[in-house]
Amino acid sequence: MTEFSQALRVDLTEDREETRRFLVLRRFFRSPTFVAGFAIVVMLVLLGTGGVWLSPYEATGMDLRNRLSPPTAQNWFGTDNFGRDVFTRVAAGSQLSMFVGLMVVAINAVAGAAIGALAGYLRQLDNLLMRVMDAFMAFPAMLLAIAITAALGPSLFNVVVALAVAYVPKTARIVRGTALIVREQQYVEAAQVAGAGTMRILRVHVLPNCLSSLVVQLTFVFASAVLAEATLSYLGVGLPPPAPTWGNGISDGREYIVEAWWISLFPGLAITFAVLGFNFLGDGLRDVLDPHLPGESE
């Protein structure tokens, strides 16, 4: 510990910025929930990349002579009704889930931050923007996503669009809440008096201060998007069947639940694991970044 703190002291004199980042990181890694979440997410990424690469099977490659095989040394998670390797499909499903999650989070980050910051900082826009968001939020998020994919048709792009539309209003509302507080701060007033333009104030003062609540919200959006994507697949409005999504896997196994429980079991465990990981990550981030934010993850 003494060695460590000495190293720290040397750092302080050498490079303040780097030390500050290091200290923030150290605070994250002190939170057990953050570490657990981080570990799970790393494992999922490894599963999605390494698992698919290592597996001798194709996610959609059928082998009808080897249908409904229980877990063996060759097929770790068994095979499904088409003789496809369940492990390879779960690994490939991890790629799909992560991709959908990342896209939904990216759209949420841009649109949610823009709408939220504008509504929170510019009072003229607040009422209009937030009433529109309220109308979207009047639909349960999942149901809105189901409705949009039902209207647009099932595809990867439409699933991302539907989930983004479903979660942006809540993200915007959370950013707006923080922006409302920031705009009353004296440094914002000082910037206004100094003649800074609206865009500059939004960019330099409002948005950076909304960042921590935004990041926490985005982790929960990621968790929700993974869960919602699986649900859409299961209901038949997500990615259409040959795609190895986790939801499709569970849905495939539904008919064979008595004789081949492994088809549904493993994708379900994967979803639980992934969502749990992002919830942990969100809880950990919130504890460190935003100790006063109320606990909630829908």
Binding site: A223, Y234, I250, V258, G268
Partner: peptide
């Protein structure tokens, strides 16, 4: 509780059928 919010309910449903019914 965290497991409760993370687990997909359609999967729990299928597993419950497997356990309690089958």
């Amino acid at each position: 509780a965290l497991l409760g919010v993370s687990v997909p309910n359609f999967w729990i449903g299928i597993m419950a059928i497997l356990f309690f019914s089958v």
